[in-house]
Each structure stands twice: as C-alpha cells, then as structure tokens.
C-alpha cells in the first residue's frame, strides 16, 4: 500500500515540531539557525506532498522560491553572526544580553 497524504504531512509536522523545540532549547546561535532551516525544510516537504496529491505544480514551484530565500537568508544570517562574534566574542544567546542591562 502506498503511503497517503496524511503520512507525508505527519512527517512534515514532526520535523517542524522538532525544529521549533530546537529553537527554544539550544543556546548556540548557529544551532538555532540550523533548526530554523529544519522548519523551512518541513514546510517544503508538506508543500511538495500536497502539490503531488492534488496534481498541481503550484506547491512545487513555491518550494523553488523557498529554497532561494533560504539560501539568501543563510548567507546574510551567517554574515551577521560573524560580525556579532567580532564585536562580542560570543555566539551564545544567553550572553548576548547587552540590551537588557
């Protein structure tokens, strides 16, 4: 028996939940960033599955744009993290609390 749409969406939902928990749990900015990418990937999986089962190209084309935006986001985000490390000498979010005091 072929796995249905529900199965793919469940996998995508679990991936998204794991990525979200990672964003909440981790303190390392780079790992938080990777978990954000995981959430984006989960959304692409859901889009491709729906696009396949409803026989339309729209979801698959949207995934194309998501990959483009994710690549641009990673480049800019990592440049910001490097600039942050130059100034503050840390990438742990708990130590980046200069606005708090």
């Amino acid at each position: 028996m072929q796995p249905g749409l529900q199965a793919y969406l469940t996998v995508a939902g679990f991936l998204f939940a794991i990525g979200f928990a990672g964003v909440l749990l981790r303190k390392n900015t780079l790992v938080i960033f990777m978990c954000l990418e995981l959430m984006l990937t989960a959304s692409t999986l859901a889009l491709v599955a729906i696009s396949r089962f409803y026989n339309s190209m729209d979801g698959a084309l949207f995934v194309f744009f998501i990959i483009t935006v994710a690549a641009a986001e990673v480049a800019v985000g990592l440049a910001i993290i490097v600039a942050l490390y130059r100034r503050r000498h840390t990438i742990q979010v708990d130590e980046l609390n200069y606005l708090k005091h």
């Binding site: 028996m1 749409l5 969406l9 995508a12 939902g13 998204f16 928990a21």
Partner: peptide
C-alpha cells in the same frame, strides 16, 4: 518549555494531517 512545545506542536500537526482525505 521546549518539550511542551514539541509535544503540543506534534499533536497539532498530527491532528491537522488527519483532516486531509486519505489518498491511497
């Protein structure tokens, strides 16, 4: 907080996925 968010999001995703018709 992280574990509660993980469990609740997973349950919500599972419940949402159930709303779609089964396409065998």
């Amino acid at each position: 907080v992280g574990l509660v968010a993980l469990v609740m999001l997973a349950i919500g995703a599972f419940w949402l996925a159930r709303q779609y018709p089964t396409v065998a």
